[in-house]
Design a protein around this nucleic acid. Structure first.
Length: 385
DNA sequence: GCTCCACCGGAATAAAAGGGAA
DNA sequence: TTCCCTTTTATTCCGGTGGAGC
């Protein structure tokens, strides 16, 4: 029998335009962030108090997706940690992503665990968990007061889901400083008055990156991630221009550049040309929508199916009609209208659909007009997979 | 057996704007 | 013309239930 060629060997030997693709990964944290020096300095000016054994003031960071909020906060955390080792203080910085820990309880439990307390995620009462958390501040091996700086990323998600209980607890705990990061400016509407009074925070806004700034960011990364002379001159400016249009999103810009390189590899091209950028843009859009839809619960997929069906019939989609279509698809296994209302809202948050509430006048009440915001073919493919 | 919490739905309340009375 | 009424559905509030981790 003839030996089968090892597919990995074949793929491994194939050329690549990348020197180190990891550097373009959104999770990669560079040591230097172009055009965020000012914001980093601002955070440091507040946090430096910790080195004098004073709990720093709370900070709130606003900014759209991909404006460097998380990266800046993480760099500040690392640098503070580094310098505090040489000082006579006990500072802990902890990072929590509120999309992973969506309730007060989950965050406090997680903090306890990160700080070395063995707290189970279930089984203990709220009081027991809180006591364990507060105990951590009472005694420690060095006989020094611990200062805890908590970075709560995407805090708007937690506030919307669970209310302001977490902020209440944290602001009432001595020696805790909060840095909250939010995508939305209006997230404070979820904070009640009792918490507002104890949360005396400094606010910071991260502006979207401009096209030229995005060029700087991409150039810096591309230098190390691509092989020499593989990138055509126009590629980076074009990626930057596209990303600048989408609210100056650096994460998107990096994603675009990486996908463009991947397409060059797939086409076994030695150079990355502008023509791959447009293709990369389509692929990212397609993958993004597909990923979201595939991970949706079955009931929400059915709602989308109903929307797709009505869209294809070119009918105006109003909430009542949508529910009828949904019930028909569900064949008896349907949830209430009340649930569908939530689903529609979630789908809107995800950007798959948009809604517009209109009133039709006396005797006709009001309704939501729903429109699909993505390509019907992409949606169809995603639903059938 | 205890706790958490995602999921669910009933009930109350709010909203919008054309129609009709004054 | 102004202003209140009307209707229907959007939206909010809130409590129940059951699965899962401990």
């Amino acid at each position: 029998m003839e030996d089968t060629e090892n597919i990995f060997v074949k793929l491994k030997d194939r050329g690549s335009v990348f020197e180190n693709k990891q550097l373009l990964d959104p999770r990669f944290l560079p040591s230097h962030l172009p055009h965020r020096e000012e914001q980093l300095t601002s955070i440091a000016k507040y946090w430096i108090e910790a080195l004098n054994n004073v709990t720093p003031t709370d900070i709130t960071i606003y900014g759209k997706t991909g404006t460097g909020k998380t990266a800046t906060a993480k760099i500040a955390m690392n640098q503070l940690k580094e310098i505090s080792l040489n000082e006579d203080v006990f500072i802990r910085t902890e990072y929590i992503r509120c999309t992973d820990y969506t309730t007060e309880n989950q965050v406090i439990v997680r903090l306890c665990q990160q700080l070395g307390r063995d707290v189970p995620s279930r089984g203990w009462t709220r009081g027991e968990v809180l006591n364990a958390f507060r105990d951590i501040f009472k005694k420690n091996a060095f006989g020094k007061n611990m200062i805890l700086i908590v970075v709560l990323d995407e805090i708007d998600i937690l506030l919307k889901n669970d209310g302001d209980g977490l902020l209440f607890t944290l602001t009432r705990t001595d020696n805790v400083s909060i840095l909250s990061i939010s995508n939305h400016v209006e997230f404070k509407k979820y904070i009640g008055t009792r918490v507002k009074s104890s949360l005396r925070d400094k606010e910071m806004v991260f502006p979207p990156y401009g096209a030229q700034q995005l060029i700087d960011i991409l150039s810096e990364r591309a230098k190390l991630s691509f092989k020499e002379d593989t990138l055509e001159d126009d590629v980076i400016p074009y990626c930057a221009a596209l990303a600048a249009k989408i609210e100056g999103d650096a994460r998107y810009a990096l994603d675009l550049l990486r996908t463009t390189g991947e397409l060059a590899d797939e086409n076994q091209s030695d150079t990355v040309t502008v023509s791959f950028v447009d293709e990369a843009k389509d692929r990212i859009e397609h993958d993004k929508i597909t990923d979201v839809i595939v991970s949706l619960p079955a009931q929400q997929q059915r709602v989308l199916e109903a929307i797709l069906k009505l869209t294809q019939k070119k009918e105006e989609i109003i909430s009542g009609k949508l529910y009828d279509a949904y019930e028909e698809i569900s064949r008896g296994d349907s949830v209430s209208y009340r649930r569908i209302f939530d689903f529609v809202n979630e789908l809107e948050t995800l950007g798959i659909i948009s809604t517009n509430t209109v009133s039709r006048g006396r005797g006709k009440g009001r309704t939501n007009i729903i429109t699909l915001q993505c390509d019907t073919n992409v949606l169809k493919d995603a639903l059938s997979s």
